[in-house]
Simulated scan of single mutants.
Amino acid sequence: MEAILQGVEQWAWIGWLVLIALFLVIEMLTLDFTFLMLALGSTIGLVADLTGLPLWAQVIIAAIAAVAFILVLRPPLLKRLHRGEDPTKSNVDALIGLNGVVLLEVTTLTGQVKLSNGDTWTARVDSAAPVVTSLAPGAPVSVTRIEGATAYVRSVHD
């Protein structure tokens, strides 16, 4: 049993290299900097192995380093990455709060609205709207949420 443990400790550097490569590949797929921090922690574990520390110490040092990198280095990197993003809402997020007009009577089960951006949507009265159960054609509405292909609306006058 002791021979197996010595073999594992002797070849631990290969395990560290495999972990580093695995974390870097996952990081390339996720682009979240979490696995990059784990790869850096594994690099510290590799350095600890090359200095001759026992395997248990290598794992502890690598874990502490990875946690420190995640807590200290990752937040400013994420902030720098997202610095130049366009803050304009898009897709479904851009529809929330958009005004429109009822085309076909909107109830809690069915209806149709034309939004101010020109889109026509299947619509329902939002259950959170105050006691309104239907909206007549021509009534001005505002989108409160989108679920699938249905816009939930409320009267602008509420």
Rank of each mutant, 00 (worst) to 15 (best):
P140K: 13
S90I: 12
Q112A: 11
K79E: 07
T150Y: 07
K114Y: 09
T150A: 05
G148F: 00
T122L: 14
V92G: 02
A94K: 04
L77A: 10
H82C: 05
N117H: 05
S142T: 15
L78D: 07
D126S: 10
R80M: 14
A128E: 15
V131Y: 15
D93H: 07
H82D: 09
R80H: 13
L109M: 13
V113G: 03
P137I: 03
A129T: 12
T144N: 12
D126H: 05
D86A: 01
D126R: 03
T133G: 08
L115M: 09
T150R: 10
S127F: 09
N117K: 03
S90D: 12
L98T: 15
T150E: 06
G97H: 14
S116F: 08
A66G: 04
L98S: 12
T120C: 07
T144C: 09
L81S: 11
P76H: 07
K89I: 01
E105P: 06
G111V: 05
P87M: 00
L98K: 15
I146Q: 03
E85W: 06
L73P: 03
P140A: 12
V102K: 00
D126W: 04
R83T: 06
V141A: 09
E105R: 10
T122P: 02
W121V: 00
G111P: 06
S134L: 09
A94S: 11
T88K: 11
V106A: 07
K114F: 07
T150V: 15
T150G: 03
G138T: 10
G84C: 03
K79M: 08
T120S: 11
V106S: 00
V125R: 04
T150D: 06
A68D: 04
R74Y: 00
G84A: 09
R80A: 15
F69G: 00
A94C: 05
S127Q: 12
V141L: 11
T107Y: 01
G138H: 09
D86G: 00
A123G: 02
A136N: 13
A128W: 10
G148S: 04
L73Y: 10
E105H: 06
A129Y: 01
L98D: 09
L109I: 13
